[in-house]
C-alpha cells in the first residue's frame, strides 16, 4: 500500500511551496483543523486548569457526541431538508448533544470524580481511563446490538455524513486563487464562536471570575466564600458538553471517522495541544490548537502533493511537536511552573 516512491525533485517542491493557491489552501485548512482541535481541547484545558484533572474520558465524550449526532441526522432525515433546514437542524442537534453530554459529565463528576480530588493526581488519570474503557465498550455493545454501520465499530460510519452534508458545504468555492469549502468556513466560524464564547464566559461572567480565581488559588477562593465544588461541577459539565459538540462537528468532516477508536484518535492530539499550550492555560490552548492545525494541514498537503511518502505524516508531526516543545519549553508555551509537576 505504501511504497517508497522517489520523492519529487526539489525544484518541484519549491514550486508547490510558492504557489499562492497552495499556501492559502494550507492556511485555510489549518485554520479549519485548528478550530476543530480548539473545540476538542478547550474543555480539557478548562477541566485541568481548575481541577488538575487529566481527563482521559474526554475523547470518549467526543466519540459519543459523534454517534449521537449521526443517529440524530439519520432519524430526523436531515438529508432531505434543504440547506437552511439541514443547517438549522444540525445546530439544534449540536445544542442537544451539548446538554446531554454536559449532564453525563455532571453525573460522572458528582458520583465518581469528586471522590478523588484529595488523592494524588495519578488516581484521576486512572479513574478517567477506566471511564473511557467502559464508555468505549458500552458504545461497542450498542453499535453491534443496534447494527449501526452494519455492526462495525472500528470502521468509520459515514452514512450520516453522506446522507446529510449539504452540497453547499461540501463543494469548493473559488475566489481568485483562494479555494475553500463551505465546511471549512463553517468549522472556522464555529471555532471563532467557541473561542469568543469561552472568552466571554471567563472574563465577563461572575462564574468565569470564580473559575479564574479557583485556577490560581483554590483554597483562597473557598475562603472568600466561593463554592468551588459547584464550580468544579459546572466546569466539568461545560468541558464535557464542548467535547460532545466537537464530536457533532467531526461527524460532518470526511477526514474523521465516526467509530469507537475515535475516542483515542481525538484524545491524543488534544493532549498534545493542552501540553504544548501549557497545562491549564486557555490562551496557550488557543495558540497551540491553531499551531497544531496548521502543521497538520501542512503534513497532509505534503503527503497529498507527494513531497513526503508517509500516510500519517500529520500524526507523526503532531507528536513531534509535543516532543520538541517539551524539550525546548518544558512547561509549554504559556505554562505556569507548578501545574502538573507532581505526579
Amino acid at each position: 500500500m505504501i511504497d517508497v516512491l522517489t520523492p519529487l525533485a526539489l525544484a518541484e517542491t519549491v514550486d508547490l511551496l510558492t504557489s499562492p493557491s497552495d499556501i492559502t489552501g494550507v492556511l485555510i485548512e489549518g485554520l479549519a483543523k485548528g478550530s476543530l482541535y480548539l473545540m476538542i481541547a478547550v474543555g480539557l484545558t478548562l477541566i485541568f486548569g481548575l481541577m488538575d484533572v487529566i481527563n482521559f474520558a474526554h475523547g470518549a465524550f467526543t466519540m459519543y457526541g459523534a454517534y449521537i449526532a449521526g443517529v440524530a441526522v439519520l432519524a430526523l432525515g436531515v438529508g432531505s431538508m434543504g440547506f437552511v433546514g439541514a443547517l438549522g437542524t444540525f445546530f439544534i442537534i449540536m445544542i442537544a448533544v451539548f446538554v446531554l453530554l454536559a449532564v453525563l459529565g455532571v453525573i460522572f463528576e458528582v458520583t465518581l470524580i469528586r471522590k478523588l480530588y484529595e488523592y494524588p493526581p495519578i488516581f484521576m488519570i486512572l479513574l478517567t481511563f477506566g471511564i473511557t474503557i467502559t464508555m468505549e465498550e458500552l458504545m461497542r455493545m450498542i453499535v453491534e446490538f443496534r447494527d449501526i454501520n452494519s455492526g462495525q465499530w472500528d470502521i468509520g460510519w459515514d452514512a450520516p455524513r453522506q446522507s446529510s452534508l449539504p452540497s453547499e458545504l461540501g463543494g469548493t468555492t473559488e475566489i481568485g486563487f483562494v479555494n475553500f469549502t463551505g465546511l471549512q468556513l463553517m468549522q472556522i466560524s464555529m471555532g471563532v464562536a467557541v473561542l469568543a464564547g469561552i472568552w466571554a464566559f471567563l472574563n465577563k461572567t461572575r462564574y468565569g471570575l470564580f473559575v479564574r480565581a479557583g485556577v490560581e488559588d483554590e483554597e483562597m477562593a473557598r475562603a472568600l466564600g466561593i463554592d468551588i465544588n459547584r464550580t468544579f461541577t459546572a466546569v466539568f459539565a461545560v468541558g464535557s458538553g464542548l467535547a460532545g459538540m466537537a464530536g457533532v462537528m467531526l461527524m460532518w468532516d470526511p477526514l474523521w471517522d465516526v467509530n469507537v477508536p475515535l475516542a483515542l484518535a481525538v484524545l491524543l492530539p488534544a493532549f498534545v495541544i493542552v501540553i504544548v499550550g501549557g497545562l491549564g492555560s486557555f490562551k496557550g490552548t488557543v495558540v497551540a490548537s491553531f499551531l497544531v492545525g496548521l502543521i497538520d494541514a501542512l503534513g497532509t498537503w505534503a503527503f497529498q502533493t507527494g513531497v513526503i511518502q508517509f500516510t500519517d505524516i500529520d500524526q507523526l508531526m503532531i507528536f513531534a511537536i509535543l516532543v520538541v516543545m517539551l524539550i525546548l519549553r518544558p512547561r509549554g508555551l504559556f505554562g505556569v511552573k507548578g501545574q502538573g509537576d507532581h505526579g
Binding site: L268, L316, V323, G340, H342, G343
Partner: peptide, 19 residues
C-alpha cells in the same frame, strides 16, 4: 520533566513510534 509532563512526553514518543 516530572509528573504529568513526564507521562505525556513518554506517551508522545511512543505514539510517534506507533505512527
Amino acid at each position: 520533566l516530572s509528573g504529568v509532563y513526564f507521562a505525556m512526553i513518554t506517551l508522545g514518543i511512543a505514539e510517534m513510534m506507533y505512527v
